[in-house]
Amino acid sequence: MKRRDFIRSTALLTGGVLVAPSVLAGRSSIKRNKKITILHTNDTHSNIDPFPENHAKYPGLGGVSRRYELVSQVRDEVENVLLLDAGDIFQGTPYFNRYNGVLEMKVMSRLGYDAATMGNHDFDIGVNGFVNAQESANFPFICSNYDFTNTELYGRTKGYHIIEKGGIKVGVFGLGVQLKGLVPDDKYGETKYLDPIEMAQEYTRILKSSGCDLIICLSHLGYEYASDKISDLKLAESTSDIHLIIGGHTHTFLEKPTEVINKTGNSVLVNQVGWAGVNLGRIDFEIEQKLKKKGSFVLQ
């Protein structure tokens, strides 16, 4: 074994869960590392235009035109970019009331979204209403814990989605909130809500065995609750193999992702960027590849 490889292997082994940031920063130039940038939104709520300049909380913020510009800048800057949304695309401005979600879908398609999940408000004009708007979308909706059998949405969403970019396999699944009580019964019809933790375990198993390097959950469960209701933080700690939960529903503005330790002692990132498209989340992942010879880790 060459001396150089020996040193690198040592660093990797001592790395484990907690390598100091400085060590990592020093490693970022290693050529075989693969990089991918995740851009994300949640709860955009039909905010096509920026908030007006006299808006009490977010004067002049947001707007899809500027979001497009910012996304384009990142795409110019780095090679591998995914754009994801965690639901509640619908409801909040007259654009939705007037055009029933069609414009939102067209805009997101043009922005180049790779995938989204459904929020409770995406059921506001019924399953049929969503299906009509979805005709204008060129990206998939990932719903892993809604059973749409006997509804018009059956076969129109995916339980999971694998995207390969720059040699990285990204597995995406999506979790939605319990609809009963949030959405009038007749709007979601026979849609069945399935247990988020059970479905997370099911889909992470599939994605892991498909060789995904990165597993992302698009969640509309909500960041955190005072009650024992399932939330992103609870989901993160009660599962294994999820790397990133992109959340929504609670309109939580996080300055940085929350790091949660999962069932197997590894870190999961939970992020959420408020609502209305006033912020765009960005997470740059760098994946260190295994050395080709498996045995080379063993120091003898």
């Binding site: 990797l12 790395g15 484990g16 869960v17 907690l18 390598v19 940031p21 990592l24 970022s28 910012l70 396999k169 892991k208 065995s209 060789g211 995904c212 390097d213 990165l214 597993i215 294994s240 193999d241 790397h243 990133l244 996080l254 300055e255 940085k256 992702p257 790091e259 999962n262 197997t264 002692g265 590894n266 870190s267 999961v268 990132l269 992020n271 960027v273 912020n279 765009l280 989340g281 960005r282 997470i283 740059d284 992942f285 760098e286 994946i287 260190e288 590849q289 295994k290």
Partner: peptide, 23 residues
């Protein structure tokens, strides 16, 4: 920070690092 090596069983990655921004 580092996401630990727990995923190594079936994937080719040995660790994953991440930076985060709010834009």
């Amino acid at each position: 920070f580092i996401i630990g090596a727990g995923l190594t069983a079936c994937s080719s990655a040995s660790y994953i690092a991440a930076d985060a921004d709010v834009i």
